[in-house]
Amino acid sequence: MYTEKVMDHFTNPRNVGEMENPDGVGEVGNAKCGDIMRIYLDIEGDIIKDVKFKTFGCGAAVATSSMVTEMVKGKTIDEAMVISNAAVAEALGGLPETKMHCSNLAADALHKAIGDYHDKQQKKE
């Protein structure tokens, strides 16, 4: 069902955890299946220095969460903003058809966390 890469990220998820005083937090629930993901960002300048996640969801949800954290670490927020659901799925070597929606969780949470970062910045100014 899942590719080796998906199973690897599911078994050894990268960047699991929380963050004290994150610069941005995004949480999304997957309306379709009830799964939840939360992502924390540590941003310096416009570079994503560190990232952590927590996910309640299926194998694909966990794997895409883990994958997306790897993909954004060290990137600028603009680069991170353009990471799409499809790109995450592709980076994992693909997902089963019925599981494509799971990748929404990861990308959406990321984008939401960046949005949160922007909001906080604006408040500071």
Binding site: P13, V16, E18, E27, I36, M37, R38, K54, T55, F56, V62
Partner: peptide, 8 residues
């Protein structure tokens, strides 16, 4: 559970 935002 360690990974779960709900358990937090």
């Amino acid at each position: 559970r360690m990974m779960s935002p709900l358990y937090d």
